[in-house]
């Protein structure tokens, strides 16, 4: 095991974590402000990826494809919020889970109906393909490096928006006391739609960015959605900072676990057995991490205790 390989895997973990953050940020904002569990967040991720793939196929432009993913996911988010989600804010979590589960069925089958069951492909543009040389002799994919930087820029933008802008003040006020800001004359239902659209756009962007390194297919959003849940449980529901820390923690644990655990077991077991034990354990590592966090901090790392 060389340093270069380890550095590369660490960067992969960081890239994975940053993309998880784009998903988790929307989920945690929507939960923090509206108190809603949105299982259909993974569908918005899928819609972003499909919109990007379809646009890239039609125009050949990656930038237009990213724009399309943002717009399509945001529009889908607004439609869903106005027609369905709005009726769920005052319901208990069980109703929210069921209704958004129903939305997943509708979105997934609808997408299959329009695009078919075969995966679509979204290519990385020429100017982002190839590798770059980093210090200490590390060669790394330029596209993945771009993802890390883009994700971190979005994170910085989000923190700035929430800390400094008028809309950010309203979001924070909404998290603290919904009734009060409604009483102060803020159009609360427009604020909710806006937050939902923002979360949806972030999920759609993540879908498009990841779609270029994986295939774009129906059901792609669900594994990511569940990881995003793990992220916000670890970070503390409602906390953007928790979402960022949790996402990077989960991204690194998952990637490095898959890389290191088989090697670790190879020291004591035969190679074939070590590979199977190591990879099975690695697939469980983030859930073990989650359980450990819950034992010590039931409300997550940055939740109000």
């Amino acid at each position: 095991m060389s340093f270069v390989l380890l550095a590369e895997q660490t960067l992969n973990g960081l890239q994975f974590g940053v993309m998880l953050f784009l998903m988790a940020a929307g989920l945690t904002l929507i939960f923090g402000v509206m108190g809603l569990i949105n299982l259909a967040h993974g569908s918005l991720y899928m819609i972003g990826a499909f919109a990007a793939a379809a646009t890239a196929a039609a125009t050949g432009s990656f930038v237009l494809a990213l724009g399309a993913s943002l717009v399509a996911a945001a529009i889908a988010g607004v439609i869903v919020e106005v027609t369905v989600i709005r009726r769920l804010y005052d319901r208990d979590h069980l109703d929210q889970v069921l209704a958004t589960f129903a939305l997943i069925l509708i979105f997934s089958e609808g997408t299959r109906w329009i695009f078919g069951s075969f995966p679509l492909f979204l290519d990385t543009p020429d100017y982002l393909s190839g590798t770059v040389s980093l210090p200490f002799g590390v060669q790394y994919s330029l596209y993945r490096l771009t993802l890390i930087i883009a994700g971190l820029l979005v994170a910085v933008g989000l923190f700035w928006m929430i800390a400094k802008t008028r809309i950010g003040i309203r979001i924070r006020a909404g998290e603290n006391d919904r009734e009060m800001i409604a009483a102060l004359g803020v159009d609360i239902s427009r604020l909710y739609t806006l937050i939902f659209a923002l979360g949806a756009a972030l999920a759609g962007l993540a879908g498009a960015l990841i779609g270029a390194i994986q295939s774009v297919q129906v059901g792609m959003g669900e594994p990511v959605l569940i990881l995003a849940f793990v992220v916000i449980v670890v970070g503390g529901i409602g906390s953007i900072k928790g979402a960022l820390v949790g996402a990077i923690l989960i991204g690194l644990t998952d990637t490095l676990g898959r890389f290191l655990l088989p090697k670790l077991f190879a020291l004591v077991l035969e190679p074939a057995q070590a590979a199977s034990v190591g990879s099975s354990l690695a697939s469980m590592s983030i859930y073990i991490l989650m359980a450990a966090v819950l034992v010590f901090r039931p409300k997550g790392l940055f939740g109000d205790s």
Binding site: V84, L98, A99, F101, A102, L103, I104, L105, I106, E109, G110, W113
Partner: peptide
């Protein structure tokens, strides 16, 4: 799709 609509 129909199942989802009914559940909703």
């Amino acid at each position: 799709i129909y199942l989802g609509a009914i559940l909703l």
